[in-house]
Amino acid sequence: MRHVLALSATLSFFWLVNSGHYTPLLLFFMVVSVLSVAALCHYMDVLDGESQPLNLTFTLPGYLLWLFREVILANIAVARCVWLGTSSISPCVITVTANQKSDLGIVIYANSITLTPGTVSIDLNENHIVVHALTGEAAADLLGGEMDRRVCRVEG
């Protein structure tokens, strides 16, 4: 039930933001379409902790702030590599272990790796993530395991 409510709230917000017309007729259409989509998702049985991760509501924002800082630093490092030319990069492929308990945690970890420029997750089997790193420093940073620990903490 919590998941249905969360989905309805998200969809209503999306409609209100994108519509810009607040007449009774259009608000009625909003209620009808939000309810039908929520009912459809409920009967398809796709509403669970994975599509609506409510348990992460309070731990995720702090992690996102840290990730934001990391992304900016990594961007500057990769931009320097671009301007210095091909000789400054040393591509390598490494494998990191994801210590998260749930599939959702592993996905958050792999997506954070991809979001950070300089490292891209290229394959995933069980809990080993194959990562392509642009420079040795980026790879060493990732192998340090700081991001892994933080994602584990997000998971709670």
Binding site: V71, N75, V78, A79, V82, I89, P91, T114, L115, P117, G118, V120, I122, H132, L134
Partner: peptide, 12 residues
């Protein structure tokens, strides 16, 4: 694979 990194700068 290194071009992906360059593309991800513009994306983020």
């Amino acid at each position: 694979f290194s071009r992906i990194h360059a593309a991800s700068i513009t994306d983020t």
